[in-house]
Write a protein that binds this DNA or RNA. Sequence first.
RNA 1: GGCCCCGUAGCUCAGCCGGAUAGAGCAGUAGCCUUCUAAGCUAUUGGUCGCAGGUUCGAAUCCUGCCGGGGUCGCCA
Length: 583
Amino acid sequence: MDIFALFEGRVADALTASFPELASRNEVLARVVVEPPRDATHGDLSTNAAMVVAKPLGKNPREVATVLADHFGSDPDVASAEVAGPGFLNFRLDAGVWHKVLASVAEQGADFGRSDVGQGEKVNVEYVSANPTGPMHVGHTRGAVFGDALASLLAYTGYDVTKEYYINDAGSQVDTLARSAFLRYREALGETIEIPAGFYPGDYLVPVGLSLVEEFGNSLLGKPEDAWLPPVKQHVLAAMMELIKADLKKLNIEHDVFFSERTLHGPGGDIEETLDWLRERGLVYEGRLEPPKGKLPEDWEDREQTLFRATQFGDDTDRALIKSDGSYTYFAADIAYHRNKVLRGFTALIDVLGADHAGYAARITAAVKAVSDGKAQADVRFCQLVKLLRNGEPVKMSKRSGDLVTLAEVVDEVGADATRFMLLFRRNDAPLDFDFAVVKEQTRDNPVFYVQYAHARTWSIFRNAARDLPGLDISASALRGADLSLLSSPDELDLIRLVGSWPRQVAAAARAHEPHRLAFYLHELAAQFHAFWARGKENPALRFVNDDNPTLTLARLALVDSVRQVLSNGLGLLGVSAPEELS
RNA sequence: GGCCCCGUAGCUCAGCCGGAUAGAGCAGUAGCCUUCUAAGCUAUUGGUCGCAGGUUCGAAUCCUGCCGGGGUCGCCA
């Protein structure tokens, strides 16, 4: 039960009942929201309805609000409806409403917060898509976690989600990869090798050399490159993808679809087909591009080339499709790839990219508009850099020597839970400091620990109740029969309010494509719960478990259970475990 | 030079589709912690929301310009 959504419905009904001329004004009604007031002393719920409709109606907002307030006089759930400020309408709810909300948490369990705001829309979330040239490093980790949490969130809110990985296996870098692997192959056969600059020097190719020997023996030796390159490429790509999948597995990330760029190339392939399709619509032409302003690239040559009319769809400049050597640009393949997604029926295409690709957003958005005739929506999300720290000191990384911190190293050191939560405890487009020392700390400075501890505490309260009140039935069905009207103190009602706002938070986070909001909410819920718990230390009457009052204990346990449920649901969406006990 | 992101308390950051007196954590200060789990809790100090305009009943939020920081800039992926 989402109390805010429920009242949005009632407010809309009240509006159209009082002002029939609004019935056809959906664009106006859509702006009406019911939300918690900024200041809790204003009541339980607040709506901007009167201010939104005042102008279209040509009436004074406070006047409209008064009419609405009268309308809600007969609503048994509403204890009072007051007009405030410029025309807010504030509701104070009958405490029984909050008790119903609490009961609905128990009833819905893991589904409390689930919704159908997505209405089954087919969404493709493309994330990670790291080049298959080596193990994943920390730079990829943030996008991986962000995309994965976003996908879970969207699935939970009624979207039909596919998690996809685009394998960049068509560029010249994979040839370099194959050549690097071939060196390791020769090494495995006893040669002493030297790795030239520009090759991939990493040790992770050593086992690939060995497995090449296993598969081909020494049969590739002495052959010309064009004979050994294709099979070696095939072999090393498969090995790299296994490596990457194993890394992702450490973070509990599994994609539904791995899409190979190579399958788009070639005669009759998607790229050709897509360019033909675009040509038919006059969106491809031969022309010259203005050189970039400012300093000119050294190898700039003014020549005619094949361009996509990206400007027609909101990009700043038209974009090249074919390189000077005749092969397709990365972008040409990407247009075909996005068209492929559209043809598979997706109407929302989310691309999760690193911040260094920020300049790419406009052209992807343009391409998706073009290939879908405006029917599909692209949303390109960027993840900013993660700065690794150790006790406040930056961790040194040198790309040149291949001395990067890998995803596996981070996860092995701090664990998947902490990695995921920390990366989600910040907006994706803001830079993030990741300090190993803080993340491993078991104090309130560490939000992962703080939230998990709150969850563990709910379990420990139940364990204590079972120990101290052995005669009390605290099973789920017994909790359902608890007399919730005993929960009437401000602290209790505040906690229920926060629990009750969970569905609204989830829906808002999904609409905004911002999973970090869930992490912040969970942190807030944990804080309020810890605070409530601490009050029981000063005043035993406020404890959840009261030896001399089993009825009250049962009601409070129902409240604790709702907190447990929401923490568990939330951590689950973020892909973080919810332990019953901290060791 | 063009484009994109960012600028909110000393620090790190939230701020939901424009809404009421701008929030949290850390740090600081003053307390509590002989336990429903010790790793916590309470109170308190602290703001020209980068600057200047604009839009309107109302702007941290939307628009324009400027300042500062980061990223990026035909054929790399």
